[in-house]
Design a protein around this nucleic acid. Structure first.
Ligand SMILES: NC(=O)c1ccc[n+]([C@@H]2O[C@H](COP(=O)([O-])OP(=O)(O)OC[C@H]3O[C@@H](n4cnc5c(N)ncnc54)[C@H](O)[C@@H]3O)[C@@H](O)[C@H]2O)c1
Ligand SMILES: NC(=O)c1ccc[n+]([C@@H]2O[C@H](COP(=O)([O-])OP(=O)(O)OC[C@H]3O[C@@H](n4cnc5c(N)ncnc54)[C@H](O)[C@@H]3O)[C@@H](O)[C@H]2O)c1
Lengths: 216, 216
DNA sequence: TTTTTATCGATATAAATATATCGATAAAAT
DNA sequence: ATTTTATCGATATATTTATATCGATAAAAA
């Protein structure tokens, strides 16, 4: 299986990036059914998308399809994962081992998605020392220093909204380069820091609005 | 405070819908600082957006600004909430009271966002009967029937991926009209059912890709 | 009272994203 | 060996989304 991955890859829009994991999902299912090639049409049908869009998205991964057959599934999964950098794991710290934080710590699948949470941090003394899914909860005071020494690049924020900026600042002080933020606040960070907001209320807003419209 | 909300509201794009909750966040903070009017510029600055875009988004809520002053904050919060249908609560059932499901059940803020989870359902007998944040966990067998009888319109899916379609089918059988899906699968539903996917891995993919790019 | 000013909101332009068209190609069928 | 076929991928068009321009307006200043 030859992988031509260093091929010049086109620019990736955020919308394309968000669709790529969905392709993996379908491809894995097809693979489990012993299917070896998937056409853009098959994928598009499964996901209710347009096959042209699928082809364009896949082009961005650099994987080449075969006329009449489509894309070799193994190669395509590999290519998508590579594009997302899911073929590597990046070390991460999580801050706020509350209910959402614990759910994330306990979720094994993120390690398939490039995220290796190696420690959690808390300001609540009673939680410090806990171990959740083999991950130890440490005192928040150690965050910056440890991030710096261990060259941790990703920080996950699951503290209450009014603590989030403070935590982000500590992360950045520790050299963290990308923040996955679950707190419902807009974080102010320097340009060189990437922030990705995973705010459930945004998604919920779309749902409640559409539902209200549909019931009108 | 006069609210002209039934004014003809323009079509709302999904991207606008996703920004609206962010405006509420900023407006609430300004309000807590005793500020009464917010200009599109102030809001845009806080969120790193363009003020024209803010004005366009706000226009979609039907709220009218005042020259030189901007938007009356109280009225604007009200208008945005109305647009999202966050000024009503819709009853919802959650299925899968595992770690993510429990975090959602325990999160009080969703009731400010139009979601009133009134029961949870499980197929794991040991979990049935539990009470999480005043919400009782019931056996999954009762889902369709109760949804139908209680006219529940929203279903939240937090079961493992390979159970999600089955659960969605039961919800639809029970007359549920909108599904908030946290399982990493594309649900197949009839046209009249709204599905909003809250898939964390999509967000994570954007993060890991951008981080890899930035470190190149 | 008149002038200045900040901001809105309508309209226009630009950019990004999605969809359509079609020739090229390799597999399968004849 | 030749033809047919499904699919790719490049290029072109359409749609959606974001950004820019500018006259109108109401508040504040002169
Ligand atoms: N639970 C959910 O379903 C949910 C949904 C959407 C958003 N969120 C957001 O996620 C965040 C966490 O929510 P949660 O429900 O897990 O809350 P939680 O209260 O259960 O957990 C927050 C944790 O952060 C810790 N913490 C607080 N300040 C800290 C600090 N300065 N340093 C280190 N740790 C600190 C607390 O001790 C606590 O354990 C909040 O911002 C919330 O708005 C949660
Ligand atoms: N935990 C996370 O941080 C996280 C993150 C992203 C996505 N997810 C997704 O959310 C879903 C739940 O994840 P989790 O970590 O809470 O898993 P979990 O195993 O803790 O919880 C799943 C729950 O669903 C119940 N269940 C299973 N089949 C059921 C059925 N047919 N009817 C009713 N209940 C059923 C189980 O008994 C269990 O309690 C999964 O699809 C997962 O991929 C979770």
């Amino acid at each position: 299986m030859e992988m031509v991955l260093e091929k010049q890859v086109k620019a990736l829009s955020e919308r394309t990036l968000r669709r790529l994991p969905r392709y993996i999902e379908i491809l894995k299912r097809l693979k489990s059914e012993k299917i070896e090639f998937a056409s853009s049409n098959m994928i598009a049908d499964e996901l209710g998308l347009d096959s042209i869009q699928v082809r364009k998205d896949l082009a961005a991964t650099g994987v080449i399809g075969k006329p009449k057959l489509g894309f070799a599934i193994d190669e395509l999964i590999f290519g998508i994962k590579h594009t997302l950098n899911w073929d590597n794991q990046t070390d991460a710290f999580l801050v706020g081992a509350g209910s959402l934080g614990s759910a994330i710590l306990g979720y094994k699948t993120f390690s398939d998605h490039g995220l290796n949470i190696i420690a959690a941090f808390e300001n609540e003394p009673s939680k410090v020392g806990e171990i959740i899914n083999h991950i130890t909860v440490l005192p928040i005071e150690k965050l910056s220093d440890m991030a710096y020494r261990m060259k941790v690049h990703i920080g996950v924020i699951t503290v209450p909204a009014d603590e989030a900026q403070k935590v982000a600042d500590m992360m950045i002080e520790g050299g963290i380069k990308a923040i996955w933020n679950f707190a419902p606040v807009h974080l102010k960070v320097p340009d060189f820091v990437i922030v990705e907001n995973a705010q459930l209320s945004h998604s919920l807003g779309v749902l409640t609005h559409k539902l209200a419209e549909s019931l009108k």
